[in-house]
Amino acid sequence: MIYHMIAFVGGFFLDLIMGDPYNFPHPVRWIGRLISAIEKHDLGEEDTKALSGEQKRRCGRRLVLLVCGTTILVTAFVLLLAYGIHPMAGCLVEMFLTYQTLALRCLCKESKKVYICLRDKTLEDARYAVSMIVGRDTQNLSPTGVAKAAIETVAENTSDGEIAPMLYLALGGPILGLTYKAINTMDSMVGYKNDRYSDFGRCAAKLDDLVNFLPARISALCLWVASVFLGKDYDAKRAWRIYRRDRYQHASPNSAQTEAMAAGSLGIRLAGDASYFGKIVNKPTLGDATRAIVYEDILRMNRLAYGAAVFCLLLCLGIMGLILAF
């Protein structure tokens, strides 16, 4: 457990310092390639295989088993091999895998690019920058729409990219942490409700809802605690009120949890209708428009996410300390 705690803290700070270097080998990229290969084998290019809905659902269940099973086996093998060589070697490998599982620095870095484009460059530059981190169509977004999209993705991914992985890493190390990332990656790649993926990605989407149920709520609480301590740009009382009112406004039971808390803390309105693959998707709004969204809100959201991550670190260390004590 001592080695696990050292690896956990070291991996957390490696992510804050280094982020995700471009063109660097990354387990999540390898998981993505595995998902893509299985998808193309089962569905063909552009859904060229004539499969029934039940056949697609069966393929989707097999995808989940193959990806999760492969992730668990490979991660366990690497860790056992490293710890078998020497405990310090195992600790260093676990630290590296922990670092690779977290993504807050990268997320905030990419959202800051959107902020810089809105401040110093053209709207087209800003639309392109935000298209790198969101799944919606961005070609017609206004400056406010671009800023709002960046804020929303940081708010949502504070859970998916940092808090939830931290909780699973604390409980089960990189084996559980990377398995969570595998589930999350499957949902982001095949969890869409369209003709190609509505059946094939159903199992992955439902499993993602399940594994994020508690972490999404803990993430919202971490954002609330950060709101208490971060100063006058944030309003913890309003954040709690908006959270209780709007946290179930999205179709997913989890995605509105952190967005509602962030909207309340910042005093802005998030969500609402958005375009995906050329089709308008109607969504309720989150929060009250007590003021207009400005591009500086992207940086405010980033600071809120960092504050939540620090509180989660303390929470996880407390959990691991209790496990060690007993």
Rank of each mutant, 00 (worst) to 15 (best):
M1N: 02
I6S: 13
I6G: 12
V9Q: 10
V9P: 08
I17L: 01
W30Y: 12
R33G: 00
R33K: 02
I38E: 01
K40R: 13
D42I: 00
K49A: 06
E54K: 15
R61Q: 08
L65S: 07
L66M: 15
G69A: 01
L73Y: 04
V74E: 00
V78Q: 05
Y83S: 00
H86K: 09
H86Y: 12
M88W: 15
L92F: 06
E94Q: 15
M95P: 04
Q100M: 10
Q100T: 11
A103F: 01
K109R: 15
K113A: 14
L123E: 15
M132Y: 02
V134F: 07
D137W: 12
Q139M: 14
N140M: 13
V146I: 07
T153V: 03
A164H: 04
P165M: 03
P165E: 02
M186D: 01
Y197K: 09
S198M: 13
F200M: 09
F200Q: 08
R202W: 14
A205T: 04
K206W: 12
N212M: 01
F213S: 13
I218C: 01
S219G: 09
L221V: 13
C222N: 14
W224P: 02
V225M: 13
S227P: 12
K232H: 15
D233H: 15
D235E: 13
R238H: 14
A239Q: 09
A239D: 10
I242C: 06
I242L: 04
D246T: 10
R247M: 04
Y248N: 15
H250R: 03
P253V: 01
A256P: 00
L270F: 07
A271W: 14
A274W: 04
A274I: 07
S275W: 10
Y276M: 06
F277Q: 14
P284I: 02
T285R: 13
A292L: 15
V294S: 15
E296S: 11
L299N: 04
R300V: 05
R300P: 05
Y306C: 12
L315V: 07
L317S: 05
F326G: 15
